[in-house]
Amino acid sequence: MALMRPSLRPSATLQTPHIHQQVRHATLLKRPKRPYTFTQLITLSDGSTFLHRTTSPAPIYKSTKDTKNNPLWNPSSQKLLNVEEDEAGRLKRFRARFGRGFDVESLEEGEEAREGEESVPRERQEESLLDMISSVGQEAEKKGKAAGKREEAKKSGKGKGGQK
């Protein structure tokens, strides 16, 4: 089973006619052209590895996103569902600037505080929100473009999975 018979190959097999007769022409038997292939080691994100044949000369391919850490392939994994996509680092930069107040707000909107996330008491939430709004306003006054900021703040809520 391992050693598959080469019958399933796309080679130009000779069709020997049943009626044997002399032919005057000659058919060129072409050498099949195949690209050079290497053996490559693929390392998935959970550390599992496998070898495969590829045209790429890189000896190792290390994947960061694959079936082991994608929620589509792991629908029951709560851990993966909570991971927010922030590949460009925009959420991180936003938080460094404006704090995490908006995360809580979006959580409350969606009303699905998942387990493993800290829940902030209600009064403190409002406090932090007020802080946030005032600070945003101040900053906007300084720079004179408040509208753009607010929109960004709305977009990057945690419950919305960090859309770009």
Binding site: A2, L3, R31, K33, R34, P35, Y36, T37, P57
Partner: peptide, 22 residues
């Protein structure tokens, strides 16, 4: 046997495949 066979086929392939385009 499988290991020996695969190695043999790979060495055959060296001369039968197109050269690597570096």
């Amino acid at each position: 046997f499988e290991k020996a066979f695969f190695l043999y086929q790979k060495r055959l392939n060296e001369r039968l495949a197109l050269p690597f385009t570096r």
